[in-house]
Computed example of a mutant assay.
Amino acid sequence: MKFFKVFLGLALFAVAALVAEQTGNVLAGIVSIPLLTYGFEALTGLSLLSGPLALYGALSPIKRPAQGEANPGGGRKLWLIGVDSIVGEWPKKGDIVEGEIINPPVLVAGPPAAVFVEVAVSDNSLKIDQNMKGASGYQSWEQMIEVKIAGFGKVQVAAIENLLNQEVVAIELSNDGQRIVIGTSINGQQFEITHTSGAKGGDRREWTLKSKQDGYMHGYLPLKDTIVIPGVS
Rank of each mutant, 00 (worst) to 15 (best):
F4R: 14
K5Y: 08
A14R: 10
V15S: 00
V19M: 08
E21K: 00
E21T: 08
Q22F: 05
L27C: 05
G29Y: 00
I30G: 11
L35V: 14
L36R: 00
L36M: 15
T37V: 10
G39D: 03
G39N: 02
F40Y: 11
E41N: 08
G45L: 06
G45Q: 01
G51F: 00
L53F: 13
A58L: 08
Q67K: 03
Q67P: 12
G68S: 01
G73F: 04
L80K: 02
G82V: 06
D84A: 05
V87G: 03
E89I: 12
K92H: 14
I101F: 00
I102V: 15
N103L: 05
L107S: 14
L107N: 03
P112I: 12
A114R: 01
V115K: 12
V115C: 13
N131K: 12
N131T: 13
G134T: 15
A135S: 06
W141S: 09
V147P: 01
K148C: 05
F152T: 07
K154P: 07
V155F: 11
Q156P: 06
A158S: 04
V169C: 05
L173K: 15
N175P: 00
V181C: 10
G183W: 13
G183R: 10
E192K: 15
E192S: 15
G198N: 09
G202A: 14
R205I: 05
T208A: 11
Y216I: 02
Y220L: 06
Y220C: 04
